[in-house]
């Protein structure tokens, strides 16, 4: 075998390995089911009337979920105001989207009134406030964070820090994406409209 032929053979081998690797990677990607790439959050929490609501009853609808507390003067009203704009903007498609406000300060929020708060922004927003354990379980299943912070300069001596994004859950109950805090309502609306 001449040196020239050996060179060609080696390059051919390299090419085969590259094609094989690429094929293997593409194949692997195709085999991966979409569902495995995401997760299915779950919750069982009381609404303002004390009725237990679960993720399962909303199958077939998109869920727009925000975790917050009604004593929050800045981030929560701002986000709920955006949700209200999105719901108005959806028009007839609004029936396919259920906005949820899940309280991470459920005891105080139940005392203060959950529905009057959510309804002040939009009648379609459903407020949920479970027990401490149920709230913890819901937050874990959504993979979100919240924490009580002792703060002298806050009502009742504490405030809550919390994940501030809006979460979109699909009609089959799978987590689709989050809209980080401050995403303009127009962007959320446009994104939802491509899905409905």
């Amino acid at each position: 075998m001449t040196l020239r032929k050996l060179q060609i053979a080696l390059w051919a081998a390299v090419a085969l390995v590259l094609i094989g690797t690429a094929g293997f990677m593409l194949g692997a990607r195709n085999e991966e089911p979409v569902a495995a790439a995401t997760f299915q959050p779950s919750f069982a929490l009381a609404d303002a009337a004390g009725r237990e609501r679960t993720d399962e009853e909303f199958r077939g609808k998109y869920l727009l979920v925000f975790f917050g507390f009604t004593n929050c003067p800045d981030v929560c009203p701002t986000t709920l105001a955006e949700v209200a704009q999105v719901m108005d903007g959806l028009g007839e498609d609004a029936a396919q989207v259920q906005p949820l406000f899940i309280s991470i300060d459920p005891e105080r929020d139940r005392q203060m009134g959950l529905s009057e708060f959510t309804e002040a922004f939009h009648p379609s927003i459903l407020g949920l406030a479970g027990t401490a354990d149920e709230t913890r379980a819901a937050a874990e299943s959504f993979k979100i964070f919240y924490e009580r912070q002792e703060a002298e300069a806050s009502p009742d001596g504490y405030s809550m820090s919390h994940s501030s994004a809006l979460y979109l859950i699909g009609p089959e109950g799978h987590w689709i994406r989050q809209y980080s805090y401050g995403t303009p309502a127009s962007e959320i609306l446009a994104d939802l409209q491509t899905r409905l």
Partner: peptide
């Protein structure tokens, strides 16, 4: 808002 977590210090 840090790492997506909102808090409200004085």
């Amino acid at each position: 808002v840090e790492d997506g977590i909102a808090s409200m210090p004085h």
